[in-house]
Amino acid sequence: MIKHIISLILLIVSVLLSLRHGWSAFQPPTPQQAEMMSILGVSKNALPYFGAFSILIGLLLLFPKTFFISNLMHAFTILVIMALSLRAGNFKIALIEIPFLALPLILIWLKYPFKN
């Protein structure tokens, strides 16, 4: 029972983070976002694609049949961000992303909360 509650809380957090990050990609970038994107080498034209992908991941997390693959896509996206930051020599961003990488992996381990 506790496992299901923890899984549900983490699922809600993961969905909200994905949707928030996806939505923010369609907004004008803040100076911090613009700086981070330039450090990572991501162009401004690629932001809507990342935003749509993030929203798709957040929505796919809600369905039991796509729960596993969406968590894999979420973990892959975070690994790409970490790899880009390490390539740019910015270890701080890579280290900050570690807890966010753990979130989809823990969700995979806990499984979908409403599935029997």
Rank of each mutant, 00 (worst) to 15 (best):
L60I: 03
V42C: 13
N71F: 11
L84N: 02
G89T: 03
R87F: 03
F63E: 14
R87A: 09
S70G: 04
I98V: 10
P113G: 00
K111F: 08
Y49S: 12
F68E: 14
S70W: 07
S85K: 03
F67A: 09
G41C: 13
N45D: 15
A94K: 03
L61H: 12
Q33E: 09
M1P: 13
P31L: 10
W109M: 14
P64V: 14
I5Y: 08
A52C: 09
G58F: 05
M37S: 12
P28D: 01
K92A: 12
M73V: 06
I106P: 08
P104K: 04
L60R: 03
P99W: 01
S18T: 00
Y112K: 06
I96K: 07
I9D: 05
L10R: 02
I106R: 04
M82D: 04
R87Q: 07
G22Y: 10
L72S: 09
L103Y: 08
L61Y: 09
L86T: 06
L105K: 11
L47S: 13
Y49Q: 12
K115A: 05
K44Y: 12
Q33K: 10
G89W: 06
F67H: 13
V42N: 09
F53S: 15
P48N: 08
I106S: 06
L110V: 13
T77M: 14
I39W: 07
F53R: 03
L47M: 15
F26N: 02
M36S: 11
I93E: 05
A34Q: 08
M73K: 01
G89R: 00
L8H: 02
L16K: 03
I108G: 00
N45L: 15
R20W: 03
A102N: 11
